[in-house]
Design a protein around this nucleic acid. Structure first.
Length: 495
RNA sequence: GGUCGUUUGGCCGAGGGGCUAGGCACAGGUCUGCAAAACCUGCUACUCCGGUUCAAAUCCGGAAGCGACCUCCA
């Protein structure tokens, strides 16, 4: 089935029909984590958003190469006076090798993403492993006359670039003249010809641990170089989709465009996609603001904020987090609250339970409800710029039908039951990447045991031995198993 | 201060000129030994002020609140 997939392009400020540069193949690049701390809820947003994009493109039949970088050099600590490399600073504090710190947090990032059922990208390049490519990029920009060397550092010449291309600010809507008026005083500004110029290569100060030789100085690459260099290396130039958080639009992505145009003459990619932020009490959740809750804390419910106040009313499973994020459109902000998470948890369980019920539905000769429309409704929602909240709303509608049939108040043929199974499989599991958190390796054994226990209870109930039947139910409840009596006997589920 | 965006029911959140999204919560009902689940019903909202229109939550203008970004935070 050919789908007309519309995606919102930040560059054009409108939804555009997605057509790959090379038929049948898609190259996508997403800005990955800086590995100097544990992933928090904010990191889950782009990971899940672009995981769904990756899954959906593959579902549509594209062969996708998904590149997501690991930033392990070059980004300066915000509050570090000396402009010390983030990784290096953390390493000194903990007496570890910089690469050891990077590896440690990379491993933990992977573990958290695995739990969220985020697929690993096709290629996950490290900035530190692509210094040569970044030096080559800088050299090309110098050769084009759009950068200059100053005291061992190399800066991008914004004003010259603008004269020649008139393209600076096309992504973010930034106007150079306005930037002048709003520029703050910063260290190192005297090396620049223009305050808006950004570093392509930075000379390392003596105490700076992470450094590499270059034609200009011992130093490290500028903050935007890695994505330009690695994107082009692994996806070609231009490639299809570049994604990341909205907070990266300026200066990071604007600078990437400038670097690419300066070095190749054309834009790096066709579509720019940006996910919105997760807020907490209405404010962006971020490392620098100190108001973040790590994913690990969500999973075990152990967070305390800086005042020692407990922010989490309970632990939230990875699938609850995933469902919570998917229940909002990726370009909207989504506000964290216990109420919202709890609502997501219940909704997620309802959907999972409906799918299980679907597997035990008794088929009829005729269907009394029409379920043929759900598939296309879900496709339509996905095709409209990945509108997962709408997909979910259709799945809830289908869940109601399933439950109604289960209550013998409606009927479905085997064909229609299979159709619903297929729709759930595609959209719930394959595309949105949810999975049944309750299922385990011992499923068969537990099912057997539970069947036996429920049989005993059914016998007790038949004998009106309520003491025994209630004892069984209460004991199971204490173990976290809910017994649900229905017309056709009891079923159970993990609470 | 500048740029951009946003403001939807008790809560979360879609939609985006006429066709009451969905989830959660709450209340009533059906079923049930009781409870839970499920199903049915109710709660029917779009920040404010103008304007356009037969018709505005939806378009236009203005105001206010909130947020992101404004060069070394990704």
């Amino acid at each position: 089935m050919q789908q007309q997939f519309l995606i919102y392009n930040t560059l054009s400020h409108q939804k555009e029909l997605f057509t790959p540069i090379t038929p049948g193949r898609v190259g996508m690049y997403v800005c990955g984590p800086t590995v100097y701390g544990d992933a928090h809820l904010g990191h889950a947003r782009p990971a899940i958003t672009f995981d769904v994009l990756y899954r959906y493109l593959q579902h549509l039949g594209y062969k996708v190469r998904y590149v997501r970088n690991i930033t392990d050099v070059g980004h300066l600590e915000h509050d570090a006076d000396e402009g010390e490399d983030k990784i290096a600073k953390k390493a000194r504090l903990e007496q570890l090798e910089p690469m050891e710190v990077a590896q440690y947090y990379t491993n933990r990032y992977h573990a958290a993403m695995d739990r969220l059922n985020v697929l690993r990208p096709s290629i996950e390049p490290h900035a530190s492993g692509h210094i040569i490519e970044q030096i080559e990029l800088v050299q090309k920009i110098l050769d084009a006359g759009l950068a200059y060397v100053s005291n061992g550092s190399v800066y991008f010449d914004i004003r010259k670039y603008q004269e020649e291309t008139h393209r600076y600010g096309q992504l973010s809507g930034r106007v150079i003249d306005e930037m002048l008026a709003t520029t703050r005083e910063l260290d190192g500004q005297e090396e620049k010809r223009f305050a808006g110029d950004f570093a392509l290569w930075k000379k390392a100060s003596p105490e700076h641990i992470m450094r590499w030789p270059s034609p200009w100085s011992d130093g490290f690459p500028g903050w935007h170089a890695e994505c330009t260099a690695m994107g082009a290396k692994y996806l070609g130039s231009p490639f299809d989709i570049h994604g990341g958080g909205m907070d990266l639009v300026f200066p990071h992505h604007e600078s990437e465009i400038a670097q690419c145009v300066a070095s190749t003459g054309h834009a790096p990619c066709k579509y720019w996609m940006h996910n919105n932020m997760i807020t907490i009490n209405g404010q962006k959740m971020g490392k620098s603001l100190g108001n973040f809750i790590t994913l690990g804390e969500f999973f075990d419910g152990s967070h305390k904020d800086k005042d020692g106040k407990e922010m989490l009313a309970q632990p939230y499973g990875p699938m609850t987090i995933r469902f919570f994020i998917l229940q909002a459109h990726y370009r909207s902000t989504v506000d964290f609250s216990n109420e919202a998470l709890q609502a997501a948890e219940k909704g997620y369980n309802r959907l999972m339970q409906a799918f299980k019920t679907l597997g035990s539905l008794q088929p009829s000769k005729e269907s009394s409800v029409d379920v043929k429309g759900y598939r296309q409704l879900c496709y339509d929602a996905m095709n409209d710029d990945m509108n997962t909240p709408i997909v979910i709303s259709h799945l809830f509608d289908a869940a109601r039908v399933i439950n109604t049939v289960n209550d013998h108040k409606a009927t479905l043929t085997q064909e229609d039951i299979d159709e619903l199974k297929s729709v759930f499989q595609i959209f719930v599991f394959d595309v949105m990447g949810l999975r049944d958190e309750a299922s385990s390796d011992n499923t068969a054994l537990i099912d057997g045991l539970m069947q036996m226990i429920l049989d005993v209870r059914a016998t007790a109930k038949a004998n009106k031995d309520w003491a025994t039947s209630d004892k069984i139910r209460d004991s199971l409840s204490a173990l976290g198993i809910a017994v649900k009596d229905g017309k056709d006997g009891a079923t159970w589920e993990l609470k």
